[in-house]
Design a protein around this nucleic acid. Structure first.
Length: 989
RNA sequence: GCCGCGGUGGCGGAAUUGGUAUACGCGCUAGUCUUAGGAACUAGUUUCUUUACCGAAUUGGGAGUUCGAGUCUCCCCCGCGGCACCA
């Protein structure tokens, strides 16, 4: 390599500058003068040719293996597009072309998601029919996509607003209704007063409407709900167990959203009453630490116990207050917890029959679990805060546990007996400074603690602490400040002087020194440790034992409640068990006593599926006084959205459809009597739940997708889109798909095999591209100036695909230079035999890398490798046509227009995309000579050139002969030589 | 607070299993051609020392494992994204 470079440098010096022109006369076999690279003409020409020859029309089933590449289809919202939007589409296009070249039957469709609030709001604002608006914007959008020369099969295009399409959206809804998965509910829901409609949980952002940012209020309304929670377990389980090639980022977001938790649910009796209150907890092991219970303001028990509550007026006042709070106010973590005790009411902890007070407090949520909790301030931070505020007892029932492991000088020894011991931990404050007394133990390095000692028989904690202080420190005048709350800490270690293991149950006490008066310390104590006064904020770093760290954190208030697992204490016969063991035993007991049971809960709730707006799929249900909710018969689908005078939402909670009496009033499909159509419509997300299935069979009027075709094409092999859809579209679509699987409509349990999220493109100033900042870059302009190929290539080159990056116009011009270079290489093409080519090896390495990189979405490094190859080819005096063909072929998925043009200029009659993707010839990957690094003690000292299969001994000899290496070795003795074949040789001296 | 991802030149970023850190591109510097250059081409470009060679340092900070660490382990700092009183 090094030698080649040198040669070409010399060569360059003796050649005239216009080297290419020289070769034009001598070697090149194309007689006509080379044209300038004119992207406009080329791109337009080939887009027309591809169109006319139906190059990208997907054939049906074939013998070829299939590949289904899918983009998240654009949402027609009315806001313009910028250079960030096509990025994902470019990637799927690169992959599609790559797969075509590899001989796959590729399905790469495009369509439009056009129902929903933004489109409707935009239409209202601009006073046009949403349908007219949608058609206009689809046309505009399609045009903007077409300039990129994508491989979309436009024959399969559709919009979710086409009645032929939403017929099947309605059909799926009816199937769900039939199976009991779509139901009417009257629970309070999120109401956006600005959008004048109900919203699903997924549509909220910090309690605000995700669309308009308005404060959402809770409103009790009849609405349609889909029983998504029935699928919660499968939606969670299949994330990890169905071969999904999804990024962890998205999986994690779905896991969080589903929010599965496992715990126990049990009933607590209300004293002197037949009433019970059910509570749910994941920490049943802490149940002996319960000192009160809490019900959410919505909880029914409050109404039931009304007569018994002595302070009902106060309670009622609190309930009204809580009701008036917005979601945001209620869930604001900063705010102080509030609540009211239900005086006159006691509930009974079934584990110890203790009577405890019951509170109503809005830090407990009505919709989760049972809407009531057992409160354990010692082991739950929220309960701790509440207990502190209302002066409720804090009872420790879990002790932190620490076992001295191997690295510890007192490591626990399996072969020795273990004895229990009560121990006191003493925190001692300096008499005048904000310092605390620590011990630096001498028997091992970096072992530090505070004063510690055993409690003798009959001693109180205070006495033991005082005695230990006197013995170990010599100080005389202490003030006892009390036992530290939640300070019981257990540890297991080996006590060398007694040759036995100790199970120490320690409790912490706090003393202050009154003055520095001190006796001489015992010699033995002196030998064991030094006394060190440490500043308060340095104690944490100074201390090395984890059990002491815990005590200190509790002491300074850094740790409020101890929320981790540990050893159960103060819990009758459960004491001594680990948290895990106790959870099992206690749950068993609950089940045995028929008081409660194991219980799984989810954060995810059922999907509120109706909207009080015009622009959505009508819900195909007729309400009949006699028959109730009756489905519209399948044969009457689609139930078409009627024309209305005004699209404005009424705001009364009814959709504008309610005003069209000729549409609303209809015969009941069941009894023929008087019926009223459902006037709510489906949410924006309905249409996108299954659109990927329709592309497979877009014109079928008999079934949503033909079963044979579905079996051939599904699942989607590659799905590319924004990460913002992680917990909505992607969750809803998985839910619907599983339902369709259950009713036999599809053959796979998951729709999307591989999912990749596209990183955002920010403006050059680093901010988001937005009209507001005036920094939007329009793709039309970039394509106009640099060409579609340059823009495609640039967006793939910017950085890792899923990462967000800032746009750079000079970056595009760099890519443009690269394309010019590839273009100009035509002039150097010769008939010379490929076998002579010096860059064969580089060509095959490039094929290998580009192939692997495309597969793995590493487009940036694939392009960089193409640049390396083009740079090398440029330096060659003549370029064999076969080599050039290979370069153009592997470039073609990224820059299809220029590749196709060069391809045809090379004399090919067929499209380059009918070619075969080149296969790597392994024999070219082996270099004749490799560079090996000579290291001395791991530092690079010299490089030697050797045959790739050089033996260790040969390499050693060469390395030792290296003058540079010798100068570093000198007279030193060689201790060891490490040899890594073909890479390096490391001489250790 | 919890979970996830990340921190490498002036900038975007490379570096399959630990094995030549800074590939490729941008920008910058100098030069060639030119009436001109926001064109093209040539050379250079991590930092420090140096005319240059040689050398030294360097992947957010600190420790550790190893012949060898951007990569592995532990602790800490910073940035981004998601969730957030879910018991």
């Amino acid at each position: 390599m090094g030698l080649n470079l040198l040669k070409s440098e010399i060569f360059r010096k003796i050649q005239p500058r216009n080297i290419f022109q020289k070769f034009h006369f001598s070697v090149i076999f194309y007689t006509r003068a080379m044209d300038k690279y004119d992207h406009k003409t080329i791109e337009q020409k080939w887009q027309e040719v591809w169109d006319k020859t139906n190059l990208y029309t997907t054939s049906g089933k074939s013998e070829k293996p299939k590949f289904y590449a899918l983009d998240m289809f654009p949402y027609i919202s009315g806001s313009g597009i910028h250079v960030g939007h096509p990025k994902g589409y470019i990637a799927t296009d690169v992959i599609s072309r790559f797969k075509m070249l590899q001989g796959f039957n590729v399905l790469h469709p495009m369509g439009w998601d056009a129902f929903g609030l933004p489109a409707e709001n935009y239409a209202i604002k601009n006073k046009i029919n949403p349908n007219v608006f949608v058609k206009e914007h689809i046309n505009k959008f399609r045009e903007q996509l077409k300039i990129f020369g994508f491989t979309y099969d436009w024959d399969r295009e559709f919009s979710t607003t086409d009645p032929e399409y939403y017929k099947w959206t309605q059909w799926i809804f009816l199937k769900m209704f039939e199976k009991g998965l779509a139901y009417e509910s009257d629970e309070p829901v999120n109401w956006c007063p600005n959008c004048k409609t109900v919203l699903a949980n997924e549509d909220l952002e910090n309690g605000l409407c995700e669309r308009c940012g308005a404060q959402v209020v809770q409103k009790k309304m009849r609405q349609w709900v889909l029983r998504m929670t029935n699928y919660a377990d499968r939606l969670l389980y299949d994330l990890d167990n169905s071969d999904l090639d999804w990024e962890e980022l998205i999986k994690q977001q779905q896991r969080n959203w589903i929010g599965r938790s496992e715990g126990a649910q049990f009933a607590m009796k209300v004293s002197d009453s037949d009433e019970k209150i059910e509570v749910y907890t994941t920490r049943i092991d802490t149940v002996f630490g319960m000192t009160y219970a809490v019900a959410a303001p919505e909880h029914k028990i409050i109404e039931k116990l009304k007569d018994k509550i002595e302070n009902y007026e106060d309670v009622e006042k609190y309930l009204i207050q809580a009701q008036n709070k917005t979601n945001l106010e209620r869930t604001d973590l900063q705010k102080e917890k509030t609540g009211v005790e239900l005086q006159g009411i006691k509930v009974i902890n079934p584990f110890n029959n203790e009577e405890i007070p019951l509170f109503v407090a809005d830090y407990v949520l009505g919709f989760y679990g049972t809407g009531a909790v057992m409160a354990v301030p010692a082991h739950d931070e929220r309960d701790f805060d509440f207990a502190k505020k209302y002066n409720l007892p804090i009872k420790q029932s879990i002790a932190s546990f620490h076992k001295a492991e191997k690295a510890h000088p007192d490591a626990f020894r399996e072969d020795k007996d273990t004895k229990d011991r009560d121990v006191v931990y003493v925190i001692l404050k300096h008499w005048s400074e904000d310092k605390y007394l620590c011990l630096d133990w001498k028997y091992a390095e970096h072992w530090t603690s505070m004063v510690v000692g055993g409690i003798e028989k009959g001693e109180t904690l205070e006495e033991a602490g005082k005695r230990e202080l006197e013995e170990e420190t010599g100080y005389k005048n202490f003030k006892f400040k009390g036992e530290i709350d939640l300070s019981e800490i257990h540890s297991l270690y080996f006590a060398g002087h007694k040759d036995e293991n100790r199970y120490a149950k320690a409790r912490g006490v706090y003393f202050e020194l009154i003055n520095g008066e001190q006796n001489e310390i015992d010699e033995n104590e002196k030998k064991m440790h030094d006394l060190v006064w440490v500043k308060k904020n340095e104690v944490d770093n100074f201390m090395t034992f984890s059990n002491w760290k815990i005590l200190w954190d509790i002491f300074i208030g850094k740790v409020k409640a101890f929320v981790e697992d540990g050893i159960v204490i103060n819990s009758e016969n459960y004491s001594g068990l680990t948290s895990q063991e106790a959870r099992e035993k206690m749950t068993e007991w609950l089940e045995k006593e028929k008081i409660g049971s194991k219980k799984v809960n989810y954060k995810m709730r059922d999907w509120v599926f109706s909207r009080q707006r015009y622009w959505g799929e009508p819900i195909p249900i007729v309400h009949c006084e006699k028959c109730g909710a009756v489905p519209v018969p399948e044969k009457d689908l689609p139930l078409v959205l009627p024309q209305v005078e005004s699209y404005e939402p009424s705001g009364t909670g009814e959709s504008p459809l309610a005003n069209i009496s000729e549409w609303v009033n209809t015969a009941c499909p069941k009894c023929g009597g008087k019926g009223r159509r459902e006037t709510n419509t489906m949410p924006q997300w309905a249409g996108s739940c299954w659109y990927y299935l329709r592309y497979i069979d877009p014109k079928n009027d008999n079934i949503l997708v033909d079963k044979e075709k579905e079996k051939y094409w599904m699942p989607v092999d590659l799905y590319v889109g924004g990460a913002e859809h992680a917990t909505r579209h992607l969750l809803y679509a998985r839910f619907w798909h599983k339902f369709l699987y259950d009713i036999g409509a599809v053959s796979t349990t998951e729709p999307f095999k591989k999912l990749v999220h596209v990183g955002l493109i920010n403006a050059e100033d680093g901010r988001k591209m937005s009209k507001r900042w005036g920094n939007v870059v329009n793709p039309d302009d970039v394509v106009g100036e640099f060409g579609a190929d340059a823009m495609r290539l640039y967006e793939m080159f910017m950085g890792p695909f899923s990462q967000s990056v800032a746009w750079s116009m000079s970056g595009v011009s760099g890519i443009r230079r690269f394309l010019e270079k590839v273009w100009k290489l035509q002039a150097a093409v010769s008939r010379q035999d490929t076998a002579d080519s010096k860059i064969q090896s580089l060509i095959h390495k490039t094929i290998k890398k580009v192939t692997e990189d495309i597969e793995n979405f590493r487009f940036n490094t694939a392009i960089s490798q193409l640049m390396i190859l083009a740079n090398a080819m440029e330096k060659e005096k003549a370029l064999p046509v076969t080599d050039y063909r290979l370069l153009i072929t592997i470039l073609s998925p990224f820059a299809p227009h220029i590749a196709e043009e060069i391809w045809s200029q090379l004399g090919n009659k067929e499209s380059i995309f009918k070619e075969k993707w080149p296969v790597v010839d392994e024999k070219y990957l082996i270099d004749e000579e490799v560079e090996m690094v000579v290291q001395i003690n791991g530092k690079l000292r010299d490089r030697i050139f050797v045959a790739p299969d050089v033996t260790e001994d040969e390499a050693k000899e060469m390395a030792l002969q290296s003058e540079k290496a010798r100068s570093f070795i000198g007279n030193s003795e060689i201790k060891k030589i490490v040899f890594v074949s073909g890479r390096l040789i490391n001489i250790v001296i």
